[in-house]
Design a protein around this nucleic acid. Structure first.
Lengths: 219, 219
DNA sequence: TGAGAGTGCAAACAGTGTTCGCGTTTCTGA
DNA sequence: TCAGAAACGCGAACACTGTTTGCACTCTCA
């Protein structure tokens, strides 16, 4: 079983996501093509295995980066963004598999591991923002609602809407830059993408500050 | 030839980008599989045809949206963002084909139509920002460099670097939000994505203003 | 009347995912 | 201990894919 996963990752690196061949994976795993069906439900099952594994690996990488970063929100946001980018550049096929164009003919089952794995991946990002929110760093965003909230796992339950939107916008900024760079659509500008990411995270922080009542009063 | 393109688009809608079958396209076009090779260089050539067509269609849609929008930069940026989103949602396969995960085994030739088509698509966005820049709306960004610049086609030639970076960041914000929504990664929040896009464009505008010397002096 | 270019396609080849039936091995429980 | 069940593994076959090859069948124009 672990043999299949590692063989799948190897093949993934070689041929890319949608070009992944079950027969080739079987060959490098030392199993016959039909034998694969004992462990994995066809090609879709193989993809599902690699997808949930990818979410797990991506989430762990971001987890560790957060731990190593300084304790303030900006440092953590930058750590997330840089790790997001580095992981995507180092694992382009896995990145495309879990966050890119859906593989044709493949549809994740609603009860499958794919869906729940998304939370494993997005949870660290939510946690960082929610921690800052709980610590009172983000005043002016409905702080009365959840001042004493525990670290939330499900953003829809605990975070006020405006914070949720900032989270989505922050993630999408990272994702947009990294996707465009990864697929070569930023080649026209010779950009320092880390610099762009830093600017984007800085900008999100500024918006948080400007929205706070303290700053509004100062105006 | 047009028969092949329309049949390709039809199949693309049915099976998605990487699942596209040359044999099926041939069948719906009323040609034999081998006959396809008279008009198109195999499957890669078929994809190249559809990709350049997609860039053209996407670019035209944005062009028209800009024409219909009000003359100020914010209205135009919103028009671009909303059209970007609407077109992607209406043509998910074409969107994935031109801006998503590269199709496995397919590599665009450096001299092929794919590369040049990128400019046909990105040109409207560049033009809008450059026009505002030329009109003096964006002061404080090295306005001395290209105050009298003509409407540029190649951003690397005419735009100062800081403006170039803002363009990349603006595009990536749109692209990030639309990509995440399109592939179901924003399903955890019940977001009004148009609202998010409006906020992102507004935020880019604010950054432009804050960077201008006029506002700096006012502080 | 040709010659040549363009058009079209059936046949074949290697590759793919998947199913089926058949053995072999391993584990389990009485 | 030892039969039965469960798991493991695979070869053959089927329907699909992209691609190449060779052979026709039009036209055009000199």
């Amino acid at each position: 079983m672990g043999k299949i996963k590692s063989a799948g990752l190897k093949e993934l690196r070689r041929t890319g996501a949608a070009g992944l061949s079950l027969r080739e994976v079987a060959k490098t795993a030392g199993i016959s093509p039909s034998g694969m069906y004992r462990y994995v439900d066809g090609r879709d099952g193989l993809l599902e295995l690699l997808i949930s594994d990818g979410f797990e690996a991506f989430g762990s990488a971001i987890d560790e980066a957060i731990k190593k970063a300084d304790n303030d929100l900006l440092s953590r946001l930058e750590a997330i963004a840089f790790t997001y980018r580095r992981w995507a550049l180092a694992n382009p096929d896995r990145f495309g598999l879990i966050l890119g164009t859906p593989v044709p003919g493949f549809h994740a089952r609603a009860d499958g591991p794919t869906v729940s794995s998304v939370f494993r991946f997005s949870e660290p990002m939510v946690r960082v923002v929610a921690a800052a929110y709980g610590a009172g760093e983000l005043v002016g965003l409905g702080a009365d609602v959840a001042q004493d909230a525990k670290v939330p796992l499900d953003p829809t339950t605990f975070l006020p809407e405006s914070l949720n939107e900032l989270l989505a916008r922050g993630w999408s900024r990272i994702h947009g830059l990294v996707s465009l760079e990864l697929y070569g659509h930023l080649a026209w500008g010779d950009f320092n993408v880390e610099r762009l990411l830093r600017a984007e995270m800085r900008s999100i922080m500024d918006e948080l500050s400007n929205a706070s009542p303290a700053n509004v009063k100062r105006k």
